[in-house]
């Protein structure tokens, strides 16, 4: 048992308001940031670094909206501390496009209507990017499995599969999976 308070009172508040200073490597650049130690990476990105491209839908690990890449692996930024993110290459949706334009996935998601309201989109894009790193020609079954941790309420996922398949095809044709100027 973890009694949080004496009879019925609210749980105690966060006490430490002192900020931690650290360097986070986000989208290929080192950023010096200061944030309170109990903040999640999601909060640090959005509130302390103005990177609001990373969205949130539950903050409890239950929707996948907050997905970012950490050393290339999709992780839920709502369940990682800012403190736990040093020494890791973090990639957010803002880092997917390069000087030559968007990542192929960003184009195909836009072209094929895989982003309706667009709120789940950053999470899907990053998960999809990691999938394509592993598998240049993913089957539908692979996509169903690998994307099963990202919820979308608008599309029914079908256009998302199509967009990933088209991006994969274009990337195969270009012969390299990191065209489009991504940093990681």
């Amino acid at each position: 048992m973890n009694p949080t308070t004496e009879a019925g009172g609210p749980p105690p508040p966060p006490t430490s308001l002192a900020k931690t200073h650290m360097v986070l490597r986000v989208n290929g650049e080192d950023h010096e940031v200061a944030f309170r130690p109990h903040k999640t990476l999601l909060e640090v990105l959005r509130e302390d670094m103005d990177l609001t491209g990373t969205k949130h839908g539950c903050e409890l690990g239950e929707c996948g909206t907050c997905t970012v890449l950490m050393d290339g692996e999709p992780k839920l930024s709502c369940l990682v501390l800012g403190l736990e993110s040093d020494g890791v290459d973090i990639e957010t949706v803002e880092g997917m496009a390069g000087p030559e334009g968007g990542h192929p996935l960003q184009h195909t998601f836009a072209e094929l209507g895989a982003a309706q309201c667009g709120y789940c989109t950053p999470g899907f894009l990053l998960t999809a990017k990691a999938v394509l790193e592993d598998d240049k020609d993913p089957s539908r079954e692979t996509l169903v499995e690998e994307l099963s941790g990202n919820l979308c309420r608008c599309t029914g996922y079908l256009k998302i599969y199509e967009a990933i398949e088209l991006a994969a095809q274009r990337m195969r044709e270009k012969g390299s999976s990191d065209e489009g100027g991504s940093h990681v």
């Binding site: 496009a97 184009h107 998601f109």
Partner: peptide, 13 residues
């Protein structure tokens, strides 16, 4: 392409 398509896929929206 949707007029807001690229904004949504680049996190700009």
């Amino acid at each position: 392409i949707k007029v807001d398509g690229m904004a949504k896929t680049t996190g700009e929206t």
